[in-house]
Computed example of a mutant assay.
Amino acid sequence: MNEEKKIEVEVEIKKNLDKVWEFWTKPEHITKWNFASEDWLCPSAENDLKEGGKFVYRMEAKDGSFSFDFSGIYEEIKPKEKLVYKLDDGRMANIHFSEDDETTKVKEIFEAEENNSKEMQKDGWQAILNNFKKYAESEK
C-alpha cells in the first residue's frame, strides 16, 4: 500500500465480534448501513466472501441524481480478524477487526483516489463507518 496515499478510519462498537462480522459481511445487513448520509442508500449488495471472491455494493443518491458500484476482489480473508481487498480502480484496502470485552474495533486503512481530497475521502469513509456503528449497535 502506498504510504503517502494511506488513510485510516476507525470506530468502536458496543457489540461482540461475531455480530459485527455478520453485520459487516452479509448482504442483507450491508444494504442497511452502507451509505454516508441519509440522502443516499445501498439498494443491493453482493458479497462472495472468499479469497478471489468479488463484492459489489450499489450506492445511489435517493433523488436519483447519482449512482455507482463500489466493488473489488478479496485478496486475503482472516475471518473475524482481517479483510484485504483491491478495488476495481486498483486501490488497496485493509479492514481489521478486534474485540475487547463487549466492544469491537473496526479499523479501515485504504489508499486515497486522485479526484477528491484526502480529507473529503476520510470524512466519507468515516461517515459510512459511523453509520455501520449506529446500525450494529441497534440490531439484536
Rank of each mutant, 00 (worst) to 15 (best):
G64Y: 03
F35L: 09
N34R: 01
K54Y: 04
R58C: 02
D69F: 11
A61G: 09
G53M: 03
K26D: 12
D69I: 10
W33T: 07
E38Q: 13
S71Y: 06
R58T: 12
P43E: 09
F68A: 13
F68Y: 15
R58G: 04
K54L: 06
S65L: 01
W40D: 02
S44E: 14
L49P: 07
F70V: 13
K32I: 00
K32H: 02
A61F: 10
E46P: 08
S37V: 08
C42M: 11
Y57N: 10
C42I: 11
G64I: 05
Y57E: 09
F55T: 01
D39Y: 11
H29L: 01
S67C: 03
S44K: 12
K50R: 15
S37C: 12
K62V: 02
S65F: 00
K26Y: 11
K54C: 05
V56N: 14
F70Y: 15
F68T: 14
G64M: 02
P43Q: 10
W33H: 06
T31V: 15
S37E: 13
H29P: 04
D69C: 10
D48C: 00
L41E: 15
E60L: 11
F55L: 03
W33G: 04
S71A: 13
F55K: 04
E46M: 11
A36D: 11
N47F: 06
S67Y: 07
M59R: 02
K54R: 14
P43T: 10
E46H: 12
S44C: 00
K32R: 13
G52I: 10
N34C: 05
N34G: 01
E46R: 13
D39L: 07
S67E: 15
G64K: 04
E51I: 08
K54P: 08
F70L: 13
G52Q: 11
S67I: 00
D63Y: 05
F55E: 00
E51N: 04
K62W: 02
F66D: 10
A61Q: 14
R58A: 09
F55R: 06
K32G: 01
Y57A: 06
K32M: 03
D48W: 01
L41M: 13
E38L: 11
A36C: 09
C42Q: 11
